[in-house]
């Protein structure tokens, strides 16, 4: 399974990369493989508040729409505009294709996430 050791993972297939109080969020290679070709991404707006466990992004493939759940809580400070024009990037390079950057309100939530090894054990 293609995973990056330095990232944290949610059971619902999102990855989180922490930089200070900010967190980058995307979906795993495993998840994009199951979705098939992503054709459209619906991202939240900058300044939107998201809560851990709530749906905050919608991904569409040709014949399916999938909700993506926020792995941590916070305020959206940046969105990846590149994905809007080129959603296929999520298939090509899932770990570079972050959806949003979140200013975390409760950084300790990161501790509840899975390591790469734990995630792999769940889905291998």
């Amino acid at each position: 399974m293609n995973l990056l050791k330095e990232l944290k993972y949610a059971e619902s297939h999102e990855w989180v990369k922490v930089e200070g109080n900010k967190a980058y969020i995307g979906i795993t290679d495993y998840a994009q493989g199951h979705l098939g070709e992503v054709v459209y991404v619906e991202l939240p707006e900058v300044d939107a508040t998201v809560e851990a466990g709530s749906q905050f992004v919608v991904l569409e493939s040709v014949k399916a729409a999938s909700d993506v759940y926020a792995p941590i809580s916070g305020t959206v400070v940046e969105i990846n505009e590149n994905l809007i024009d080129n959603p296929g990037l999520i298939n090509e390079s899932p770990y570079e294709s972050w959806f949003v950057v979140i200013e975390m309100t409760n950084p300790s939530e990161v501790d509840n996430l899975l390591s790469a090894d734990d995630y792999e054990k769940l889905y291998a």
Binding site: E37, V39, Y40, E60, S61, V62, K63, P87, G88
Partner: peptide, 11 residues
């Protein structure tokens, strides 16, 4: 016509 590229149409 052969199979059509539906991903292209949606993107």
């Amino acid at each position: 016509i052969s199979r059509l590229d539906e991903a292209l149409a949606a993107r």
